[in-house]
Design a protein around this nucleic acid. Structure first.
Length: 568
RNA sequence: CGGGGUGUAGCUCAGUUUGGUAGAGCACUGCCUUCGGGAGGCAGGGGCCGCAGGUUCAAAUCCUGCCACCCCGACCA
């Protein structure tokens, strides 16, 4: 491709409304343009990258035996009413009406449509298992789209749905998809981890997320280097401390802590470390009462795990300040477990809290705290549960060494769905005995457009994007310096022709611009390899080469350039 | 939905307080010089100052309403 036939539309300045680096660079490199909130046009350069991701995904899905289909983006409400999601799905579902006032939605996902397809097409167990997939535009009316295509409303997704007679077959397909996803992300050249994930409201027994590791990632994952354990921190259990609790040394006393409300304030005021404090959070209980959750001062609440506790209302809701004062007779800043059960709250302690001795907590009296408090002596032994977010250094749940916390961007998610949709929509086949059997399902998603943004979050520098080779819009940038000199022009054209002929995807910057401008553009758009033809080198039959991430260029003999590049 | 902010050229932003003929840099067009790291000069093109009302001799500027976008939070999974 020649630059004179491929307008780059790069920007020197960063558009003001782009917050994260991938969004900034995608705009500056001229990959995307915003049309409206959460809606983006892919320009030629960006589309080349998107297509590369798509192609890797398609090849590996095909290789795994999945069957590509293309389902409508617009779906009739009927199907969603049948599955029950027309009512359940919130305002994220974009609802439409056609000219006859019949209700439709723009699909945020395709379980209903694919289940309908399945029940119409597949009759016999002999046709199972089957895995349909598509690469298609989805729409989710996010409350707050942001970060460019990272969290857009309209986005490109690969979604796959498998159908099985039994759970064993589903498990095999799940494992195959797990392996296929690993191959896909390995091929993209990105650093990623497969992590155990919460199944959320979709339910099902097993779920993994695929995370591209990047410091700017929205998700936190807990990883154990020794065992390979990896899970979303939403899910990662914390183990109860193994050592015995230290014996009490201090007597319990009430101390005045005027105007000291937060753990940090009380900790500084009393000169006691936050890890010796108990933090008391009050949430709504399932039975309509209040539940007090006790956490160590330096720990934070894990809402996903907490919601699974039978005493806690779903969804998790913090009690209002008014309600806490009315029921417990004390404001937030001075709450503590001592005497709280008597005031009518269910008290649940995190395991780490139950392990404390001589701790500090609120006195349930405004402006006062207790110190030197001990379980079994000053207050009954608590009911315990796993309530907290794991932190770096915690033991891995499988008992093998410490956890490390890393940030990740969720780019893939696989679920064992079970019979939720096949049951609701009567997706059945005849088994060997001629009996009707409801099938069991898996679903497997990859955020194709998000992979592009995630790749940039993980691979960029001050100059711009540093594409991993498999995702790069072009492999080689060819820059001619002093191209107005006939020898240079001829040599560059000649090299361009040779690169093209040998199948190398080359971007030839034949624009009549100063070298600095061309170099800056080639680096911004992140082409992995750069060749420079100049009068200086040409005299000695040399061409300059520089990798996008290299410190300094090297020189190559003109004759060996193409062969050398092909070996890279 | 609540709070905060911003809307002026393709991009980044002045100008609004204190009403008086629409600005700069970058980008774009032409010419000249320059040319291995985002050159310089000269000459140009490009604006419903978010939209609609209102006040005024006069509105980018003041008032009212609306819209869009961004940030924080809540919501959602």
């Amino acid at each position: 491709m020649r630059a004179t036939r491929f307008p780059l539309s790069t920007l020197r300045e960063t558009p003001a409304d782009a917050e994260v680096i991938s969004h900034q660079l995608m705009l500056r490199a001229g990959m995307i343009r915003r049309l409206a909130s959460g809606l983006y046009t892919w320009l030629p350069l960006g589309l080349r990258v998107l297509r590369r991701v798509e192609q890797i995904v398609r090849e590996e899905m095909n290789r795994a035996g999945a069957l590509e289909v293309l389902m409508p983006a617009v779906q009739p409400a009927e199907l969603w009413q049948e599955s029950g999601r027309w009512e359940k799905y919130g305002p994220e579902l974009l609802r439409l009406q056609d000219r006859h006032s019949r209700p439709f939605c723009f699909g945020p996902t395709h379980e209903e449509v694919v289940t309908d397809l399945f029940r119409r097409e597949i009759r016999s167990y002999k046709q199972l298992p089957v895995n349909y997939y598509q690469i298609q535009t989805k729409f989710r009316d996010e409350i707050r789209p942001r970060f460019g295509v990272m969290r857009a409303r309209e986005f490109l997704m690969k979604d796959a749905y498998s159908f099985h007679l039994d759970g064993e077959c589903l498990s095999r397909e799940y494992e195959l998809m797990h392996a296929t996803y690993c191959r896909i992300f390995e091929r993209t050249g990105l650093a990623f981890r497969a992590v155990e994930a919460d199944t959320g409201a979709i339910g099902g027994s097993l779920s993994h997320e695929f995370m591209v590791l990047a410091d700017s990632g929205e998700d936190a994952v807990a990883v154990c280097a020794e065992s390979g354990y990896a899970a979303n921190v939403e899910l990662a259990p914390s183990l109860p401390p193994q050592s015995p609790r230290a014996a009490p040394e201090e007597a319990m006393e009430e101390v005045a802590t005027p105007e000291q409300r937060t753990i940090a304030e009380v900790s500084a005021f009393l000169g006691v470390e936050a890890s010796q404090h108990i933090k008391t959070l009050v949430v709504e209980g399932r039975d309509g009462g209040l539940v007090a959750l006790l956490l160590r001062g330096d720990h934070s609440l894990n809402e996903v795990k907490t919601e699974k506790h039978p005493a806690v209302a779903v969804p998790l809701a913090f009690a209002s300040a008014e309600r806490v004062e009315a029921v417990l007779g004390c404001p937030f800043g001075s709450l503590g477990p001592v005497g709280l059960a008597e005031r009518g709250a269910v008290v649940i302690a995190d395991y780490a809290v139950a392990h404390l001795s001589d701790f500090v907590c609120g006195a349930n009296r405004e402006g006062y705290h207790l110190r030197g408090v001990n379980w079994g002596r000053d207050i009954a032994e608590p009911e315990c549960a796993d309530l907290r977010e794991v932190v770096a250094g915690d033991p891995s749940p499988d008992g093998a060494g410490p956890l490390v916390i890393r940030r990740g961007i969720e780019v893939g998610h696989i679920f064992q769905l079970g019979e939720t949709y096949s049951e609701a929509m009567a997706a059945k086949v005849l088994d060997e005995a001629g009996e009707e059997r409801t099938v069991t399902m898996g679903c497997y998603g990859i955020g194709v457009s998000r992979v592009v943004a995630a790749a940039i979050e993980q691979n960029h520098d001050a100059q711009g994007i540093c594409w991993p080779g498999p995702l790069a819009p072009f492999q080689v940038a060819l820059v001619a310096i002093k191209a107005e000199q006939p020898e240079v022009h001829e040599a560059a054209e000649d090299l361009y022709a040779e690169l093209m002929a040998s199948g190398i995807d080359v971007f030839y910057d034949d624009r009549d611009l100063r070298p600095g401008v061309k170099f800056a553009d080639m680096e911004l758009i992140g082409i992995p390899h750069r060749l420079v033809v100049s009068p200086r080198g040409l005299q000695e039959g040399l061409v300059e080469y520089k990798g996008r991430c290299d410190e300094a260029p090297i020189t190559l003999a003109r004759e060996e350039v193409v062969a050398w590049l092909k070996s890279r």
